[in-house]
Design a protein around this nucleic acid. Structure first.
Length: 450
DNA sequence: TCTGGGGTCCTAGGACCC
DNA sequence: TCTGGGGTCCTAGGACCC
């Protein structure tokens, strides 16, 4: 059996796949930035209703884990240093990590900011055996970035990923092809990528606890718990088979922005204004990526944590803040909620189309006026965009300072682009929808600026 | 303990068309 | 009056991952 620590150096022939996983990435970046934090428990995450995004190994000794509510984490480790998530910095460091990996091979598949698969088959002549390449990556990330990582080396992606998890932190683990089954079979079923607590509970009812149990169970029995497709998939993984190749560029399928509020929203006007903020974030990200969306969705979570989602497919693709906001408000109103306590709102764009391929760009004003607003447009959306109390139209069509006035054909797109440009040059606060700064149509609403 | 924000994938039912 | 089959799109929800 392979050992799970140190520089395990089994037979790495037939092991072309590496899984590289940075150790406690966000927390480690924070410690690097402020060396006084070294050796102390560090938690990166949101305050209030937030959760732990990353915990240093010192914090983990107290039972602090990723995704744990911050309130519980601080009860377990009151002396922890808590830092807010700084996504911009972590993204920049992530690019440096990925750059090192690309020195090995172009066959790099990032899984997240701090993880990637590599297929090193073609790099072997230049850089040596897979285990040597893994050692090189570990040495370079430590030397250049002062960050440690763990690397799994195996015949397949799945086994490489499990291997890196078993040698953390700052480890290297090679699983030779001949050892794959001995390595996998004692592990709990949750080691299989895609089996979480819910599926594990169902499998337990069948008496299945380990990966080996799954490997020994006939497909038709597994199908009862996992469905036909799931049964075939997990049965193959448990047998050590994983046909997935390392894939470099994968097209994005959706873009979304969510926000959990420190205090539940009770007022429909507040909800609609937050939908504008989220629509603006989502639409701006679409435009930055040169994408349009044909399907807009919202997510609403209530104080009791029940969650609803609604989506609507539009007649044509859009990328304007106004179009996303109108669709979001229409979806929200269609819920016809009675005195809701809204904990979270989200706006989502799916069915993405590259802007270059979108054929109906010029018709979006029609979509705005007739499609997205649907049957209620006569009441709620004045044709000329004049302000009416409580209507969705004023917030959207006059939502930006720059956008006050009569939209022209494609005018909203052009104005959004102008606002995007100003924000790029002068910062995110340079252009803000008016309704997020000033009291809206009612007299009793406070501004909710950042 | 009281639950973020970014995503992906799967299922299942209904509409609609041929 | 009893009743097809397949394909595709749309929608809602759930599970899962980092």
């Amino acid at each position: 059996m392979p050992r799970s620590s140190g520089q395990t150096d089994g037979d790495d022939s037939g092991c072309p796949i590496l899984h590289v996983d940075m150790d406690a990435f966000y927390a480690s970046v924070e410690v690097r930035r402020d060396p006084r934090l070294r050796g102390r428990p560090v938690i990166v995450g949101g305050g209030g209703r937030g959760v732990v995004s990353a915990a240093s190994y010192e914090a983990r000794r107290y039972g602090v884990r990723s995704a744990m509510p911050m309130s519980l984490a601080l009860r377990r480790c009151p002396q922890a240093v808590v830092l807010p998530v700084d996504h911009t910095t972590y993204s920049a460091v992530s690019q440096e990590v990925m750059a090192i990996l690309h020195e090995v091979t172009p066959l790099v598949e990032p899984l997240s900011l701090d993880e990637a698969f590599l297929d090193v088959s073609a790099a072997r002549r230049r850089m040596g055996r897979p285990a040597d390449i893994a050692r090189w990556i570990r040495a370079e990330t430590t030397a250049r970035l002062q960050l440690t990582c763990s690397v799994g080396v195996a015949p397949t992606k799945f086994v490489a990923k499990v291997a890196s998890a078993r040698c953390k932190p700052d480890g290297l683990l090679v699983i030779p092809a001949a050892d794959v089954l001995a390595f996998l079979h004692p592990l709990p079923v949750t080691a299989l990528w895609g089996i979480g607590p819910s599926t594990a509970t169902r499998l337990q009812r069948l008496g299945l606890r380990t990966v080996g149990d799954i490997a020994e169970t006939p497909l038709d029995v597994l199908s009862r718990s996992l469905g036909a497709a799931g049964a075939a998939h997990f049965s193959a993984l448990a047998a050590g088979h994983d046909p997935q190749p390392v894939e470099t560029g994968r097209a994005e399928k959706s873009v979304s922005s969510d926000r959990t509020f420190d205090v539940d929203l009770l007022d429909a006007a507040d909800v609609e204004r937050e939908l504008l903020r989220l629509a603006e974030e989502t639409a701006a990200r679409l435009r930055r990526r040169d994408l349009l969306t044909r399907t807009v969705g919202i997510k609403v979570r209530f104080a009791d944590f029940t969650t609803l989602s609604r989506i609507r497919t539009l007649p044509g693709p859009v990328d304007t803040t106004a179009a996303l906001h109108v669709a979001s408000v229409e979806l929200y109103r269609s819920l016809r909620l009675d005195r809701p306590r809204v904990r979270l709102l989200g706006v989502r764009a799916e069915g993405l189309v590259p802007a270059a391929e979108a054929v109906h760009q010029l018709s979006f004003d029609d979509i705005l006026d007739r499609g997205a607003t649907g049957a209620t447009s006569g009441d709620d959306v004045p044709a000329g965009g004049a302000a009416t109390a409580g209507g969705v139209a004023p917030a959207s069509r006059n939502g930006c300072h720059a956008a006050a006035g009569e939209p022209q054909p494609s005018g909203q797109r052009a104005l959004d682009r102008v606002a995007d440009g100003l924000r790029t040059r002068f910062g995110a606060a340079a252009v803000t929808p008016a309704s997020l700064l000033e009291p809206a149509t009612g007299a009793d609403r406070r501004p909710v600026g950042d």
